[in-house]
Simulated scan of single mutants.
Amino acid sequence: MIVSFDIGGSAIKGGFAHSETEITALPRRATPGNDFAAFVEVMRDIISQAPEQPESLALSIAGVVDPDSQKLTCANIPCIHGRRLAEDLQTALGYPVLIANDADCFAMAEAISGAGRGHRIVFGAILGTGVGGGLVSDGRLVNASGGFAGEWGHAPVIAAYAGNPPVAIPAYPCGCGQVGCVDTVGGARGMERLHLLLHGTNLSSEEIVGLWLAGDAGAAATLDVYMDLVAPPLALAVNITGATIVPVGGGLSNVEPLLTRLDEAVRKRILRKFDRSLVVPSQCRIEPGLIGAALLGLRDVEERRRAA
């Protein structure tokens, strides 16, 4: 049995995993963002509720671990940002610790327990506040040690013009330090940024989508530009990875007509032709980070047993 965690800026979710199909989730706890000792105590308290002694801990975190230095980049939780977190937690809690990026955990959950079942190569895409992704091949997470593989949201590749008639798109600065990344236009905040550019009006992504579904011409223009900017880099990711399914999570994935349109736009732009949907809603709607971390942790325990 392992204890898995889905750690976000506002909440820590814990769970106990006995197998890939037996994962019990616990209530959320507030994340102590600025106090590492308090952060450790929340984890310790969750571990204390385990029905038996865990073999290891597995964490899903909205950040990436540098594979060389093992330092974590996690800007929204200051007390763990820049730490060798696996080492620090192992010292504090006394258990082996595995850390994975939350988008990677989402991809793993979808590949094993969700929409990617039966597919060799699964590219999990996140369209939430921003854009993220993870890549699973033959049931294994690609580049699990770092969390960088699959990050299609962070590359300066957005088009300079989009829409019909074409509109000039600024190379917006991205939180990763580059400019013109997919992340700046592809998530909910990006859609809002595009609507402001086109119409000079600040609306939430929910309002923009609602107007689009109601037939509003201005919102339709925003969605035209959005598709022109997001579909090509996602199609490129499919071409490069050979993925045969792209489960999508995040808030925008809940808008079925938007995913249907994105699926059609991506399939028009890829080399391999599918007569079925490629870009699909995720199926692990509840706690995919927790599930993905559990799956990775269980497999890590199994591999360490075989190596012993």
Rank of each mutant, 00 (worst) to 15 (best):
A217P: 04
G187N: 12
R28V: 07
V167G: 08
L229A: 04
E207A: 13
G8P: 09
Y226H: 13
D35W: 14
R285E: 15
I77G: 00
M227W: 06
G297P: 14
R189C: 14
A162V: 13
I240Q: 13
V40R: 10
A243Q: 01
T201L: 08
A265K: 08
A293M: 14
D68A: 13
G94R: 03
R272G: 03
G130S: 10
G177Q: 03
E22R: 14
T21N: 11
D6F: 11
R84N: 09
D224H: 12
V157Q: 12
G63A: 07
D275V: 03
M227R: 13
N239F: 09
P288D: 15
G132S: 04
T31W: 01
S204C: 07
F16K: 02
L271N: 13
T129P: 08
G139F: 01
V248G: 00
L198G: 05
L57A: 07
I270L: 04
E303M: 13
I99H: 01
A111L: 09
G150V: 08
G249M: 00
R304N: 15
G218Y: 03
S205L: 03
G15V: 05
N76T: 02
C181M: 07
S277M: 05
Y226W: 12
A62K: 04
A58F: 01
V225R: 05
G150S: 10
R305D: 15
I46T: 13
P173D: 02
D66G: 10
A265P: 05
P32H: 06
A188E: 06
G134M: 00
S282Y: 13
R276W: 03
A38P: 14
S277P: 11
R28E: 08
H154N: 07
G250Y: 01
A37R: 15
A219S: 13
F16A: 03
R83L: 02
I46L: 15
H195K: 09
I240D: 14
F123Y: 11
C74Y: 00
G250F: 01
W212Y: 05
V238I: 12
A62M: 08
T129I: 15
Y95V: 05
H81Q: 14
I291W: 15
A307L: 15
A100I: 08
K13W: 02
S10F: 06
Q70P: 04
A308W: 08
A265G: 08
G186L: 10
A243E: 01
F106N: 02
G251T: 02
N34V: 07
G297C: 14
C79V: 10
L57I: 10
A17G: 06
G82S: 12
L258Q: 03
I240G: 15
A100L: 07
N239R: 13
N101M: 04
V246A: 00
I126F: 06
C181L: 07
R261G: 05
E55P: 06
D88N: 08
V182K: 02
H18G: 10
G147N: 06
G242H: 10
V182S: 06
A231E: 01
L258D: 00
